[in-house]
Structure formats: C-alpha cells, structure tokens
Design a protein around this nucleic acid. Structure first.
Lengths: 336, 336
DNA sequence: CTGAAAGCGCTTACAG
DNA sequence: CTGAAAGCGCTTACAG
C-alpha cells in the first residue's frame, strides 16, 4: 500500500507537482498560485490523507529538522529530565530528537556522533564525555552546529549551557560550615571533566575560606562504572581514617543515592551524626527520614537555552558563540 | 563545506558510483566487483572521510532504520528505563530511536504518530494512551509495524509486550492478606486502560479469595495530571472513612511516591500502622526507613521482546502477531 | 498564474 | 567485472 505522494495529488487535481508543493508549504503568495486551485489542492490532499515525506524533503533541502541528543545515560533521572525539557522545547522549533546514551565512554560517544551524522541531524546537544575533545573539535571543523550541556571543555571555544558548578558547590559547603560542621568530606566522580573539577574546587575553597584544614584528603573519587560498590568502600575507609567527619557533600545524584544508602546501612543518623548536602535533586529525598539540602539545577532553563542557541546556530552558522552559566539554587531543607 | 558523497569517491577513483555503492555496502560478491578496485575504493572512502547519507539511502530503499518510541513521559523513571533498554536493543538491530512523550493525552499521541510517520520511521513502540484506539487501528490499516508496550487494547489484535498485571496485582495483595492485613485499600489511576483495570481486578479478586469484604469502596482512582494534589486528599478521606485500613496497595511508581509522602507527612508508620506494597520499583525505596515490598517488572526483558518483535514485523510484514505477557516478581522486603 | 525540469545522494536492475 | 540510467519524493529556480 503505497503512501500518497505529491504526485498523486497533482495527477488527481490535474496540475503539476510544483503547484502542489507550493500550496502545501503555504508558499502560494510567493509563487502566486491561484486562490481556487490552491483550495482544490488542499482539499484533495486532505481527502487522500497526504502525509509529506520528511525524508525526501530533507534530501532536497539539506535540513532534516532533527537534532541529536547525546547524554551519559537516558535512564539517569537527571538526564531523563533534561531530555524531557529538550523534547518539549525542540517541538516548538519544529525539531524532533534522536537520543543516545554514551555511558561516559568516548568510543560510544564517537559512535553515536557518527550514526547521528549519517542521519543528517541538523545539530547536536551533547553532554560530552571525558576524552571526547577531538570529537568536539571535529564537529567544529565541519561547521556542524552543536551546544554542549552540563559540561564543556575550557580549552575549546564552543557553545554551552552549564550550571555554575564552582559557585553552587562553594555555597553548598559554606552552608555546611556556617551550620557548624568542621570536618566535611566530599564524594565525587573520578573525572577530568570540568563540571566535577569545579565542584571539587568549590568545595576546597569553601573549606579554606571557612578556616578549615585543607580538605585534600577528604575528597574521594569514585569510578563512574562502579558507584554502588565503590561508594561503600570509600566511605567506610573515610570514616575509619577520620571518625570525626561530621558532614558529606555528594557530587551528583547517583553519588548521593549510594552515599545515603551507605549511611543508612551503617546507622549514621542525619543530621545528628553527619550532615549531608547533595548535588542535584532526587525524588528519593521526599521519602527520606531527614530533610535533605541539595543543589537544584534549573533543568527547564537549561533545556530552553540549549535549544534556543542550537536553533540560532542552525539558521545562522555565523551566529556568535554563546556560553551560558545558569545559577543553581541551594535548597535548604531542615525542620529541626 | 560539502560533505563527501559517493560521487566524489567515484570521480577520485575513476569508476562509476555503482561500483562505489556496491563496495561500500559489502555487496562486492553479488556484484562481482574486482578485488583490487574494491580495495582502492575502500581506501579512498576512508581517506576522504566518507560518511553515507542515511537520508538518501532511506529515500531510495524505503527504510529509515529508525523507530519511533512513544511513552507517557520520558522523565518518568519507569519509561526512562524502558527507553534505555530499547535504545540498547535497537542498536543491535541497527536502528536508531526517536522518542516522544504523550502525557497520556490522545491528541498528543496522534500528533507524535503523525510527526514520526512523516519521518518515515520503520515502526513504532507505543505505550498507548486512553482513547487512542483509532490511532492504533489506523496504523494497522496502513500496515505499519508496531508493538504496544505496558498496555494494550483487548479489543484490537496487535503485537504487545506487557506484564501480567492481574497476576502481579493478585499476588501482591494476597501477600498482604497472608501477612495478616484485613483492610487493604488500593490507590490507582483513573484510567480505562487495561493495565490499570487488571491491577484493580487482581486486587479485588485477591480480597475476595482472602475472605475479605469486597474492596469496592477501598479502591480510589486519581487523575493522572494531578497525582500529587489528589493523592493526599483521597488518602486522607479514606483514612477518615475507614480508620481501620491496615494496608495500601499503590498501582504505579508515581502513585507510590505520592502515597508514601502522604503517609510520612501524617505520621503513619510502616509497617506498624499500615503495610504497603508498590507496583514498580523506585530508587527512592532504597532510602526509605522501612523495607518496601514491590512488584518488579522485567524492563530489560520487555525492551528486548518489543524490539525483537518489531524487527520481525519490519522485515516480514506477514509475520504472525505476538502477544507477550512477561511475569513480574513480587520482591518481598522485610527485615523485621 | 502554471509547468517542465533539474537535482538532492543514494541503490539496483539491466546491458554489455 | 563495470557503467549508464532510472527513480525514491520532494523543492525551486527558470521560462513562459
């Protein structure tokens, strides 16, 4: 059962495909198509249940109206939420989104980029993995529009939308210090990526500015692929070496989950034994026995900005780079 | 900067585009292309950094190697996890996935289907919304491959992969009864969709089989769009009307979250005041003060099956329908 | 106001 | 073993 094409309509009405194309794309004025014939064409199109073939359109116009979204893992709530805002925003610009999960692995990222490029996406939104600098540079050389999200490479001039990680982290730790905590540990990812480094830096500076001894030995880095296993070991060791730790700052939502689980299992009470601040929200917090303070990234705003910038780059390759730092809020929760 | 095409390679090597096409698609044997020339072509392709244009390929072959995934909401952990398994499985079959969220609204679903159809997806995986029967029938009439997931329409013969909702629900409630609960309420969605209806039926039958009075008055239905508001009101009213309720069965992950939040806020202790069983897992359970028993759907298996069936339908439109019921496990958690 | 025609980048019989 | 050619479904100058 062949789908109906522009040609079918043209034949049915008795005009050329050119007219049909103009009318169906609302270019009647530019093409000065007759009023009545336009009406007839439109009617026939509806009657036959015509659906434009976007693939054919793309081939001709060089625009697929599709964008590629590469995140670390679509099943991670942080990225799932980002994906949703991007989906909604993209729709407003008439874009459809193809997504892929890189699992923080450069080779998977490269593979995804290739596949999406073959699919002729008009642009990318990418949460770049460690070691993907060359991939990003290559995109740049090919003049393919993209905007990085969540992280970026300081040494490469690109569009990006990220939260102000340093500041968010600094405030979070300052908050702990102000509420009287004197030995604050941080659990982070083992990653050279700027977002994590900035979070660590914010933590360290906040310690220093609060007159605490350098936290160097109190920042622990976990492998992305073994969070659940490593978090327990690492925190266990930390508490053994430093029984006087009185607060934890968790560098991401997955780290928070793992860390809180450890604290629960080992019967550390929050906030009596240790205080906790988490980077990113989790719906799990709502059910936790203690109110949890966390850094709240404005996902909706990030998604909006990313699409806005990308759409701008697509329609004008010469558009100026945009580097957006959005501010995260520290949501302080306490009812004691 | 034009991307390099098959024509560029042909010219550079001095052969026809036909040869290049055959070689690059590994059809040298069928086309009996010369060994050496094949090698030269391959080399030149690599040298020029050739990337096939999948759009052009699609137009010619009528296959986009793309599948459309329609879920209720990609930011819902249940669907985000499904999406991930589908992404991974699809890749194995060389498919790429475009997704969209319907928000359980039939008009959005229709809109998504249209957009994806225009994009020439080879098939769909759909968690159908209430009232989308006609959309599904229409897909069927157009002989477009698809498989429903999570829910289906009993009155329409289609492929689907769903969990055995009735059974899962029945066991869950039986479990509560066996552990001595005598007045079990259920919080469900207001929905005519079979998955929710079956869950309610399983609940009712389990009550009856356990010698409890009909639970009719103890099933409450919440509007999808107002969970957080309604759940509190509804449960508050329930507890007022039936102070002797000693257990709740929550019909979905979002309902569980809302319900548990209500219990927390109102200081009902689990399991001392009320017992709870949830449909679907949530990472929030790990951090909850009490061990939570839940129905665990095998998402990975569901994703695998869905793609397997869809791929089968795509390559053979005449393939027999497949209706898969996977079994969910009741994960009993208790350390008291 | 309208039509004939080229062409987007491929694949694939067909002919030799 | 290889090339010329048609055609997938569109858009868009160009000519009239």
């Amino acid at each position: 059962m062949k789908r109906v094409s522009i040609k079918d309509i043209a034949q049915a009405v008795g005009v050329s495909t050119a007219l049909v194309s103009y009318v169906l794309n609302n270019k009647e004025k530019e093409a000065r198509v007759g009023q009545k014939i336009a009406e007839v064409i439109r009617l026939k199109a509806k009657e036959l249940g015509y659906q434009p073939n976007q693939i054919a359109k793309s081939l001709k116009t060089g625009r697929s109206q599709t964008i590629g979204l590469i995140v670390a893992d679509i099943s991670n709530p942080f990225f799932a939420n980002i994906a949703r805002t991007i989906e909604d925003e993209a729709k407003k610009y008439n874009y459809t989104v193809i997504f892929g999960s890189s699992d923080e692995a450069a080779d998977k990222s490269q593979n995804l980029i290739n596949i999406l490029l073959e699919r002729q996406v008009d642009g990318f939104i990418i949460a770049p993995t460690e070691g993907s600098e060359e991939q990003i540079r290559s995109l740049q050389e090919q003049h393919i529009p993209f905007v990085l999200i969540d992280r970026y490479f300081p040494e490469i001039s690109t569009n990006f939308v990220v939260t102000n990680n340093y500041q968010a982290s600094y405030h979070a730790v300052k908050h702990l210090a102000r509420s009287g905590r004197r030995k604050i540990a941080m659990i982070a990812y083992k990653s050279g990526l700027v977002h994590m480094k900035e979070r660590e830096k914010g933590y360290l500076d906040a310690l220093a500015d609060s007159g605490m001894e350098s936290g160097q030995g109190l920042v622990k880095e976990i492998s992305y692929n073994f969070i659940q296993q490593e978090v327990g070991e690492v925190m266990g060791q930390l508490m053994k070496d430093h029984p006087d730790i009185d607060a934890f700052f968790f560098g991401s939502n997955a780290l928070s989950m793992g860390g809180l689980r450890f604290l629960n299992r080992n019967n550390y009470r929050i906030p009596d034994d240790v205080s906790v601040v988490c980077f990113d929200e989790s719906e799990a917090f709502d059910l936790f026995y203690a109110p949890l303070t966390f850094v709240n990234q404005p996902l909706l705003e990030m998604g909006k900005e990313a699409i806005r910038i990308l759409a701008g780059q697509i329609s004008d390759r010469a558009a100026a780079l945009e580097q957006v730092f959005v501010d995260s809020a520290l949501i302080v929760r306490t009812d004691k």
